[in-house]
Write a protein that binds this DNA or RNA. Structure first.
Lengths: 176, 176
DNA sequence: CCGTTTCGTTTAACACGTTAAGTACTTAGC
DNA sequence: GCTAAGTACTTAACGTGTTAAACGAAACGG
């Protein structure tokens, strides 16, 4: 576990920038997810596929758009995931009668069974984390995160979108 | 902005599971990053490329492994990013004399110039977020995040790794 | 020395994140 | 009804996340 580059003297601060808010959130999330991934992986599921299955387990069925919001996945990602899960027989899809554009997703018996297989270890990990960190601190953290979310959402209305800067074709060789 | 699926009655709870800690962290981070991405994108940079450049700006040079830790990127991702940035002339790489395995990375004048171009808007956004959310709350949040990170890191030693479960070849059609 | 092991980094493979464009269906206007 | 606009979802393209394997260079053991 000892870091491999404890020799070059060129590591003066670098620390200060890993304290930025996005980095802190990323690190914390990664530290948590590190514990869940192995268990999911043993059952052939990614974190996002697991989110989809869990969301589906709470309702009889749901449209794709609603599922995207519930799982916090973007449309394209969800589209790929649903194809995969459908191919494995874990979910089922049907067209909404009355609006053939809408797809209605529901979990299959196999999907529900998989959830029951994975849930125990998943919840055990969550309990261990809660206990280690403290239930009150966890609640406080969740509250702060929610407040942060709302605060920065309001920024959308405060600033126009980003900055007053004309849409100049940027000089570099591009993002796409 | 009005959600598109306010019609199907199948949206009973679903809420409860978006309150899980990983989801909260993900949502909060995404809410913050949403404000930074457009600015970076206009300059032809992704969030991760920006992390690399910023880290390089704080030291004369650094080895790849050290840079990976500083930017919280995994080796493979960093490897790809460095190839890209080198191709654009924003960074420079050399082999470490005395150990040819190690690559030593440093920023170029062009890279430094790009940083100076992007930094103002980036810091303006950060200031706006700080002001909106409150500096004290921000500090409290950062502290909690750090504690969480440490708490769950300790879990590694508490539990063996995950679970007492033999390495059975999992039945599904696999993750890979 | 020479084979083996270890180390630092890169490649490979597959899944997701992100943006833009496409497709199929529906609705509104005329 | 026929077209134009909008809506729900999918495809496409490219970059990153994640794991495993490959590769070259260094350290070690005999």
């Amino acid at each position: 576990m000892t870091p491999a580059s404890a020799r070059s003297p060129t590591r003066v601060h670098l620390r200060h920038f890993s304290k930025s808010l996005p980095m802190s959130l990323l690190r914390a999330r990664e530290a948590v997810m590190r514990h869940f991934r192995p268990s999911l992986r043993r059952h052939g599921l990614t974190e996002q596929q697991w989110r989809v299955l869990r969301a589906l387990a709470t309702v009889p069925d749901i449209e794709v758009a609603g599922l995207a919001r519930a799982t916090f996945l973007l449309g394209p990602s969800l589209s790929r995931i649903l194809q995969d899960l459908e191919g494995r027989g874990l979910i089922r899809r049907a067209a909404s009668p009355g609006d053939l554009r809408r797809g209605v997703i529901s979990i299959t018996a196999a999907g529900a069974a998989l959830i029951e297989t994975v849930t125990p270890s998943s919840e055990a990990i969550y309990r261990a984390i809660t206990q280690r960190f403290g239930a009150e601190k966890l609640a406080a953290l969740q509250a702060l995160l929610r407040e942060l979310e709302e605060a920065v959402a309001d920024l959308d209305t405060a600033l126009p979108d980003d900055e007053p800067q004309a849409a100049l074709p940027h000089a570099g060789k591009a993002v796409r």
